[in-house]
Amino acid sequence: MNKNEFVNKIREIEMPKDMQRRIIENCYMETEKKRMNKMFKRPMVVAASFALCVCLTGVTALATTGKLEGFFKDVKRWDGAVVGTSYEQATDEIDMKVANITDELIVEFTMLEPDTAPYSFLEMFGINEYKIVDEDGNTVIENETIEMSVLENNNVTVKIPLNTISEGKYTLVVSKLIGSAKAEQPLVISGTWECEFTF
């Protein structure tokens, strides 16, 4: 192999997509960790600073962008070892609406920031935790998961069975979604999504 062939072969090397995703996720987590560590360096004002910062973060984010921003968070085992990642506070980054009602509730999710992590690398999407509440506030359906569907054009349609409820007005409350990329560990995405429907 001559020098040019060697150089061309090297130029063909690319970083795998899952490696890119891991690096981006870890950078987010590292930045978050550093920010939290700085807050705890002065023990005399720790509690007050933390409470103030949590409030300010929410208020500032709302004031500047009109919405809260999501962030990655470590999932830790009982002994403190990091065993995974979750994505929190994603309420304003995903839109949920009822698309149709038959004997199933057909719900459509739209990624509002498809070019940013984690939405830029998710390929499948589903519901991880939801409940259906009636007009009186009673939970009539409470279930853990709905199977993932393929994400297409930043949208995904999910079907929730309704065979156990009677006619009436209800509210679908989703607190956790789940997304995955091929051959990757699923990512739980937390937030609060609600929509009303009449069955």
């Binding site: 090297i10 130029r11 090397i13 690319e14 970083m15 490696m19 890119q20 690096i23 981006i24 950078c27 987010y28 930045t31 940013t116 992590a117 830029s120």
Partner: peptide
């Protein structure tokens, strides 16, 4: 922190190589 995605996409392959 958002800028990291653009940097990874722009320079990631080169640095990885």
């Amino acid at each position: 922190t958002d800028s990291i995605e653009e940097v990874v996409h722009t320079y990631g392959n080169m640095l990885f190589r």
